[in-house]
Simulated scan of single mutants.
Amino acid sequence: MNIAKVTLLLSCSLLSVVSMAQQRFAKELQLLNTAIEQKFLITGKGYYREHAEKQKDDRAVSYLWPLCGLIQAANEQELFSGKRGTFNRVFKVIDKYYDDRPPAPGYASYPPPHGGGDRFYDDNQWIGIALLDAWSRTGDKDYLNKGKMIYRFMMTAWDTATGGGLYWEEGNLKTKNTCSNGPGILLAMQLHKATGDKAFLDTAVLLYNWVNKHLQATDGLYYDNISIGTHKIDQRKYSYNTGTMLQSSLWLYEATGNAEYFQNAKRMADASLHYFYSSGKFRDSYWFNAVMLRAYQHLLKHTEDLKYLQAFAACTRHALQHEKRADGLMGKGKADLVGQSGMLEILARLAFLEKKFKF
């Protein structure tokens, strides 16, 4: 074999290796999606189960929270593949959790046909965010109308205790949380963009200012909640709380042109990069990190600096190498649906991004 042929074969081989490396997240996405459907979908009943292996306290079907992750992952899968159907299939399951009790319709934590449950504002907001993402992608007005319904429900959580802000759980007046205000800002901003109605922007600014006043730490990250009775701050820091506030800053910057919002976003991004990703592995749950990745992906519209994406991808690779189970699911110990849905969203987003960026 002559040198030219050897060179050609080596070049083709190298290109093949590079191509395989670039498609790592896409392949892992497909494998995890298959494992989730095999381990969590309850055949013939139109519901998912909470854990892959039944736990002592598990009920007949899953709570709503895991589906909040699964519906966003479905949106990202459709965006990546260009194929429709996955989002609506998951949303049909979520519709079984619809609860029209006063003061406003929303989604219960457990399906009313199986006994129902409390209603959490953040669960509803995560669904609303996914619906508005799907609306912007498809133009389906039903998604937009459902998003408006969720907004009406979430605003029943607002009052002037601690100067404003939204409660976390309906009827529970003990805390106001970053996790029920950050996604509330995002939903309001999505509705503002969709409708042009300034009332949504006003809501977003009101909530944004309240969270920054009461729950932002000096390093730019965010605490978990404030107690209504004592005003004591729960100082735990989770990636998803900073993620929603980082992305909120970007939405507000785009809507207003106020550079202060972008500066805030950069400060949060740098603080989160150091705190959550400098070790090379995830500090908290897959789903929490999926919410942070949404913010990092959004930030790419405004900067060519890939350091946030690169650090996040490194943590994902570490998880795939060290935390993948023999059955294809992710994580050590018991596998719950919310964790799997979080990793599914991460893989779908990274698979989409790896077509454009090298990280």
Rank of each mutant, 00 (worst) to 15 (best):
T7F: 05
T7I: 07
T7Y: 10
L9W: 06
S11N: 11
C12Q: 11
S19F: 15
L31N: 11
A35Y: 09
I36N: 09
E37L: 12
T43I: 14
K45C: 07
G46A: 11
Y48V: 04
A52E: 04
E53H: 03
D57W: 05
A60F: 09
S62H: 08
Y63A: 14
Y63I: 04
C68M: 06
L79D: 00
F80L: 08
S81D: 13
R84P: 00
R89Q: 15
R89A: 14
F91V: 02
K92D: 14
V93C: 07
D95V: 02
Y98E: 05
P103A: 14
A104G: 03
Y107H: 02
H114V: 06
D118T: 13
R119I: 09
F120H: 10
D122K: 03
Q125M: 13
I129W: 11
A130W: 10
A130K: 00
L131T: 11
W135S: 08
W135T: 10
S136C: 02
S136Y: 10
D140T: 10
D140G: 12
D142V: 11
N145V: 08
N145P: 04
K148H: 03
R152H: 14
R152D: 15
F153V: 00
A161I: 03
A161D: 08
G163H: 08
Y167D: 07
E169T: 08
E170C: 06
G171W: 11
N172M: 03
L173E: 06
T175E: 00
K176T: 05
T178W: 01
L187M: 08
K193G: 13
G196E: 13
D197E: 15
D197W: 03
A199S: 15
A204I: 03
L206T: 13
L215Q: 00
D219A: 06
D219L: 01
L221P: 00
Y222D: 01
Y223H: 08
Y240R: 04
Y240D: 04
S248L: 00
E254F: 11
T256M: 10
A259G: 03
E260K: 13
E260G: 10
Y261A: 07
A265R: 08
K266M: 05
M268E: 00
A271L: 00
Y277H: 01
Y277L: 13
S278P: 13
G280M: 06
G280P: 01
K281S: 10
R283L: 11
R283Q: 13
F288T: 01
L293I: 12
L293Y: 10
Y296A: 05
Y296P: 05
H302W: 07
T303A: 05
Y308F: 15
Q310C: 04
C315T: 04
T316N: 01
H318G: 09
D327H: 07
L329N: 13
K332G: 13
G333V: 02
K334F: 06
K334G: 06
A335K: 14
L337H: 10
Q340M: 05
S341E: 08
S341R: 02
G342V: 02
R349P: 09
L350S: 12
L353Y: 03
E354L: 11
